[in-house]
Write a protein that binds this DNA or RNA. Structure first.
Length: 566
RNA sequence: UGGGGGAUCGUCUAGCGGUAGGACGCCGGCCUUUGGAGCCGGCUACCUAGGUUCGAUUCCUAGUCCCCCAGCCA
């Protein structure tokens, strides 16, 4: 496996794994697993878990990481998600070889384990309603009470459980429960439900089953069946661990996996809960699971994030047990770092302002050499056409420039990247709106790149596109979807009120250089001085569409912000 | 306040008894035909109080604060 898929740092889990190997535990084997439930799309929080589980497997000789669909609840699961999960894990850069598993494939074995438990008088069929069961469970401070059905005979339990499977009872009539301790201070041990009746077809097993195993039963046994050595999960399962161990022990499985918990990833201003993501998609607050504003892997991909950047991010955030909220800026840092090295530079004008260079001959066109990537000489050069009429960005001209604005204004010179130094001599306004609609400039022929005066210093260099050669494009700018940190929104509040109304801005009339005529979907580019962009799947040769992945760091924006009257 | 966890720069994270390191961020400077990139410098942290020790972020005790658990979800 490539070195990118392993971590450069250690953490408490890797230390445990290393110590276990050294001690010869699990016969020195390392088998991990990534166990998503196929009821939604993977997001960056899953990426942390994927990188951890596959990373650890890759780092240990002979190690392997299984991909397992934890599909024990037929009401929410769908093959659409199964496919998407596989695509996403692969896209992130990981390989489960032939170890793709489904908890639903273990239903028969799980059933047999349940029967074993019943025979040992460690499980019983309870006929309390869900409501009654809740009351019998007690509270955090008071012990629970035994169900009146807790002492059914083994034979009666066996019979009832068999008939549950046979479909003789309606949903909710009975459940199979572990017989542990109704007075346990750990509520998870107060006779947890092992099986429930659900007359619902499963997307894989169809109508074969009408009883389905609960997570606390299916998960440890699935791990054991697959020979998992280290079962990594998030903190909220910490007090399920005694139950996990109980199941594995009582079922006497050949393998005893070890559950280790770590803190889930939170990213500031980022919606991570499956429920909320589903909400956004279903209420059409965003445009599907791959909306570039979403932290789903599909969304991040469409936005232009690279798997390499995501992996570097996951490596940098570390693995620990304390609750943490990572700032989005760290994520952005890693995309910039990655794209800076690999994204070809091109020129694009987002909000065009027409510029006529009066002393440049009408009809003349010069092909100018432009560097594709200053960070990577092997990327070579290309030619961009220059002519009398060009577009520059409206941001690069100010009629009344504030202090520290180095760009164009009437009477000032500026360099056109890869071309000439021009001087603005006049401007034309719309007689009605008063808006500046055209700049009149002159150029200095001596200052062409490579020319005698090419080294002349001017305060700024701006990007441009030749008007007659420009390609039309739509450019989509994204900002954070949330105005508030999701973790800081009171639960009684409607969290969608904190959605950023400006999270998407479509610029339909952009101009890009002609070299982009046939870019294919997914291509990542840097628009010089603006940011990193990615060709959207909506794009076609006649209608280019770009997504802004992330802006470039912008020193002037900072000054502007500091000067802004507030 | 029943149980289970956790507290180190603004944010992540390292430190495993020898005197707090890294990254992001922020501030300043250099450089620059991207106000990009790069480079240099700076910034700020051990939850509190006791104790053990020559020495404690690390060990002990007592507090404080935060998170999780009362689904037939995972």
């Amino acid at each position: 496996m490539s070195t990118e898929s392993t971590s450069s740092h250690s953490d408490f889990i890797r230390e445990i794994v290393a110590a276990d190997r050294a001690a010869g535990k699990h016969a020195g084997q390392v088998v991990t697993r990534f166990p998503p439930e196929p009821n939604g799309y993977l997001h960056i929080g899953h990426a942390k878990s994927i990188c951890l589980n596959f990373g650890i497997a890759n780092e240990n000789p002979g190690g392997i990481c299984h991909l397992r669909m934890d599909d024990t609840n037929p009401t929410t699961e769908d093959p659409e998600y199964v496919q998407a999960i596989q695509d996403d894990v692969r896209w992130l850069g990981f390989d489960w070889q032939d170890k793709l598993f489904f908890a639903s494939d273990y239903f028969e074995r799980l059933y047999i384990y349940a029967v074993t438990l019943i025979k040992k008088d460690l499980a019983y069929v309870d006929s309390l309603s869900a409501d009654e069961m809740r009351r019998y469970r007690g509270t955090l401070t008071e012990p629970g009470q035994a169900s009146p059905f807790r002492n059914r005979s083994v034979d009666e339990n066996l019979d009832l459980f068999r008939r549950m499977r046979a479909g003789e009872f309606p949903d909710g009539a009975h459940v199979l429960r572990a017989k542990i301790d109704m007075a346990s201070p750990n509520i998870n041990l107060r006779d947890p439900v092992l099986y429930r009746i659900r007359h619902v077809a499963h997307y894989r097993t169809g109508a074969t089953w009408c009883i389905y195993p609960a997570y606390d039963f299916a998960h440890p046994l699935s791990d054991a069946i697959e020979g998992i050595t280290h079962s990594l999960c998030t903190l909220e399962f910490e007090d399920h661990r005694p139950l996990y161990d109980w199941v594995v022990e009582r079922c006497d499985t050949p393998q005893r996996p070890q559950q280790i918990e770590f803190a889930r990833l939170n990213v500031s201003f980022t919606v991570m809960s499956k429920r909320k993501l589903l909400d956004l998609v279903e209420r059409k607050l965003v445009d599907g699971w791959d909306d570039p504003r979403l932290p789903t892997l599909k969304g991040l991909k469409r936005r232009g994030f690279t798997p390499e950047a995501l992996r570097a991010f996951c490596d940098a955030i570390g693995v620990a047990k304390r609750d943490a909220v990572v700032e989005v800026q760290l994520l952005e840092y890693f995309v910039r770092e990655d794209l800076n090295k690999r994204a070809p530079r091109v020129m694009a004008v987002l909000r065009p302002l027409r510029v006529v260079i009066e002393n440049y001959s009408e009809g003349q066109v010069e092909p100018l050499d432009a560097i594709n990537n200053p960070e990577d000489p092997s990327a070579g050069t290309r030619q961009v056409p220059f002519s009398r009429t060009i577009y520059i960005d409206q941001d690069d001209f100010k009629e009344d420039p504030p202090k520290q604005f180095y760009r164009l204004t009437v009477g000032r010179e500026v360099r056109l990247r890869y071309a000439y130094i021009i001087k603005c001599i006049d401007l034309i306004k719309d007689p009605v709106t008063g808006e500046v609609i055209e700049l009149r400039c002159t150029y200095d022929p001596e200052t062409r790149s490579g020319g005698p005066q090419a080294q002349r210093k001017v305060k700024a260099t701006i990007h441009w596109v030749s008007a007659p050669h420009a390609l039309d494009a739509e450019i989509r700018l994204y900002e954070g979807l949330m105005l508030t940190d999701p973790g800081k929104i009171p639960p009684d509040e409607d969290w969608t009120q904190h959605l950023n109304p400006h999270s998407l801005e479509r610029l339909p009339d952009c101009k890009v250089e002609p070299s982009l005529a046939s870019v294919s979907s997914g291509t990542r580019l840097q628009f010089e001085r603006v940011g990193y962009f990615c060709v959207d799947p909506d794009s076609s040769p006649g209608r280019l569409v770009f997504n802004r992945t992330v802006t470039l760091k912008d020193a002037y924006a900072k000054i502007e912000k500091a000067q802004a009257p507030r």
